[in-house]
């Protein structure tokens, strides 16, 4: 006998309880009373649905990790680019006008 066969036989003994015979009709009647979300993009709800879906984050943890990585990389690059070299500071002295004593 197959090793899995006894487990399969036991699983096969598990018969579901049948749904009440009017289940489908009850669902159909309940749905008829339910409000329906319009599909059109130009209806207010449809537009809002589309607009909101643009901002939905499908994987929040991944998005957060990506934001952190971009933030750290951006911050590190800004910190290095803000260091003014000697040549740059000489150039700045020429460009920036010393206004002391004008007023």
């Amino acid at each position: 006998m197959n090793e899995q066969q006894d487990i399969d036989d036991i699983l096969a003994r598990r018969a579901p309880v049948a749904a009440r015979p009017d289940l489908a009709e009850r669902i159909i009647h309940a749905a008829a009373r339910a409000p329906r979300q319009p599909l059109g993009l130009f209806s207010p709800q449809g537009f809002m649905h589309e607009a909101l879906s643009c901002f939905l984050i499908p994987r929040p943890a991944l998005s957060l990790a990506a934001c952190l990585l971009i933030g750290v990389t951006g911050g590190w690059m800004t910190a290095t680019s803000q260091t003014v070299s000697y040549d740059e500071s000489e150039m700045l002295n020429l460009v920036v006008i010393n206004e002391e004593g004008w007023l």
Binding site: P16, V17, A19, I27, A31, R36, Q37
Partner: peptide, 30 residues
């Protein structure tokens, strides 16, 4: 319903889940 019953093990809850799922389908077919 059979799927729902096998996951929940309760007739009334299984029917509720199937009904809610179909109503969701009707209300938000997109």
């Amino acid at each position: 319903y059979a799927l729902s019953w096998r996951l929940l093990g309760n007739e009334a809850e299984a029917e509720d889940v199937v009904q809610d799922a179909f109503i969701k389908l009707w209300a938000q077919p997109a």
